[in-house]
């Protein structure tokens, strides 16, 4: 099949950037979307042109590295998958496909389709951790956790931090990401020590990074490759309110 690609090319952060058209011929329907980019890049290299820079790592849908805003949606037209798990059989012969980087003030473009997602790392280091006792490792089942709580915590922890929620949100809000990271600890006994402190610091960092405000459109949940639930955002709102109300210090 033949795909008419319109790809965002941007030399560096200072460059304005523009969409450029590439016709990719002999695309196999079994190729992944990223493999199609590999084929195109090989051609560009042999032609002596600059290949398209894009993020990718495990190509198994679990690392959260690949991005790409494909035809107006993060990770393309399919639900619950990352771009590396998107295959060309999801498109038709002769389709025009527009590919852009994640767009957010907090995710500056480094080059072409690669954006800097360090803002997420800074949100995590603000409070996304637990204190652990030194000494020998404890027996796995020493701390009892109700199965439903463990399931909810696990579902929140499934977040791979790819940034699709920010990319999909009309306000570039990072609430789904931050709420998943807050929830996975707030639900478990190990996360109780820093519980109030954590949510306050992570939300403050999120705001400082310049992400927008949540307006509950639900776009993040619909586009999340790991189907992280909006329930996490409500939980974070509760956690934040009680942390602010009950904090016994300035």
């Amino acid at each position: 099949m033949t795909i008419n690609l319109k790809v965002w090319r941007q030399k560096n952060n200072a460059d304005k950037g523009r969409l450029e058209t590439y016709v990719v011929k002999d695309v196999s329907p079994d190729m992944s979307f990223l493999e199609m980019f590999d084929v195109l890049n090989e051609r560009l290299i042999t032609e002596g042109k600059e290949p398209i820079a894009f993020d990718h790592d495990c190509r198994e849908g679990i690392c959260g590295m690949c991005s790409m805003f494909i035809n107006g949606r993060p990770h393309g037209p399919k639900q619950g998958i990352t771009t590396c798990q998107l295959h060309m059989r999801s498109f038709n012969d002769g389709d025009t496909v527009v590919v852009e980087p994640w767009r957010a003030a907090a995710f500056p473009v480094i080059k072409d389709l690669v954006v800097n997602r360090s803002a997420f790392d800074r949100v995590i280091s603000a409070g996304g951790f637990v204190s652990v006792n030194t000494g020998n490792a404890k027996d796995a089942n020493n701390i009892l956790i109700p199965k439903p709580d463990a399931d909810d915590a696990f579902n929140a922890a499934a977040c791979i931090g790819c940034g699709a929620c920010v990319a999909a949100c009309k306000n570039s809000s990072a609430m789904l990401f931050v709420s998943a990271k807050v929830s996975q600890f707030a639900l478990l006994p190990q996360g109780q020590v820093e519980r109030a402190e954590r949510v306050e610091k992570m939300v403050a960092q999120m705001d400082e990074e310049g992400f927008g405000n949540c307006t509950n459109t639900g776009a993040c949940e619909a586009e999340c490759p790991k189907s992280i639930s909006l329930e996490n955002i409500a939980r974070m709102n509760r956690e934040y309110l009680s942390a602010k109300l009950l904090a016994n210090k300035k």
């Binding site: 805003f69 035809n71 107006g72 949606r73 527009v98 999909a168 619909a222």
Partner: peptide, 10 residues
């Protein structure tokens, strides 16, 4: 964005 498919998700 140059292209946004808002109706797909909200």
């Amino acid at each position: 964005y140059q292209v946004v498919d808002g109706k797909a998700n909200s």
